[in-house]
Design a protein around this nucleic acid. Sequence first.
DNA 1: TCTGGGGTCCTAGGACCC
DNA 2: TCTGGGGTCCTAGGACCC
Length: 418
Amino acid sequence: MFGIADCNNFYVSCERVFNPSLEKKPVVVLSNNDGCIVARSNEAKRLGISMGTPLFKVREIVQQHAIAVYSSNYALYADMSQRVMSVLAQRIPAMEIYSIDEAFLDLRGFPKDRLERHIRETREIVLQWTGIPISIGVASTKTLAKIANRAAKKKEDYKGVCILDSEVIREDCLKHTGVEDIWGIGPRLTRFLKARGIFTAWQLVNMNDSWIKKNLTVTGLRTVYELRGVPAIPLKEKTPDKQEICTSRSFGRPVDNLQELKESIATYAARSAEKLRQQHSLANTILVFIRTDPFKDDVYQNFSILPLPVPTACTEEITEYALDELERIYKPGYRYKKAGVILGNIIPNTGVQQNLFDTRPREKNQKRMQVVDFINLKMGSDTLRFASQGIKKSWKMKRENITPAYTTNWDEILTVRI
DNA sequence: TCTGGGGTCCTAGGACCC
DNA sequence: TCTGGGGTCCTAGGACCC
């Protein structure tokens, strides 16, 4: 059996741990730059606020019902996530961390009579030790476990745990699951299926394989197998190295000059290089992109890809190239809204093909980066940084209503008065 | 006024090879 | 009038996930 543990309204739950007065009240958390709503408490969901709505479109409802609105606090959420995952890891033999708030659990070989009790206890312990409520779905495949998880969240009487362990329950669940709620079926396939009269998961699993493969490709066929109870998506215990690393942000205000764009690109290049070194890899290509506000007239967007002469993870070198590429695509007279750097063609940093005409002091650079990373790990990120990243960064993203980094910054630790 | 960020996987089609 | 067959590799674009 597979399980999936999913934190309920995760970002909202994190905020509530440190501010219990938010319990039972409508709360939402915003995306970066305070743009869209990306997490909602059950109370906010009931008020009809849907996932991904831009805040400005629901301002009235927010005011009318005094919904608490928070900027994203990723330092806090990432740390809380780690706590939840480490508690799960203590109780479950193997797992795959699937996202910031979800983990697939390997429950193979668990005696059936002890399974439910163990899962329920695990849920209690996570709540008690971290303050985060979770729901757990269990079934014979990942996709079915996802469906069980939805049921665990929706139906009160499941009390947060749903185990889908008989044919009768499976059939009943599939009949009550719309195709749009299947893991792996997105908006486009939903439209396609509904146009052909297929509305439920149960209808989908009864279609024949060749039709599914032809119209939904092999990924769709895998999903259908999983819904039938045949595992087709394995558990990935070890997170594979990233093949592509992207750092991009929208600006807090429009940026109309090259100097500030350069600061942002240097900042994103440095962050990307840091992620690259963390997984002991090197990049072969750098992509830089800039764009104006796509919701306004007179849009300009462009990108430039540079293949590197020698694969690298050196911040200085990556920044240098990235800034060159920026100059090639920058057009004056526009108000830019977003920029980013993507490193691609990533390879492990062992056994690198050298270049005969390379003049860079590679070993020296590598040692310097090691020192920079070490200091930043010990003294806090960005303790040492390149001057090209700018000092003021007045273009940086908007986060007008952010809570302190309670658990990761000594200066922002929670104060309790008794 | 205000609209996120970071990924993976698959396929079709073009370029190229013998 | 007639113009092969069988491949690989790469890229862009589209789909999906949270």
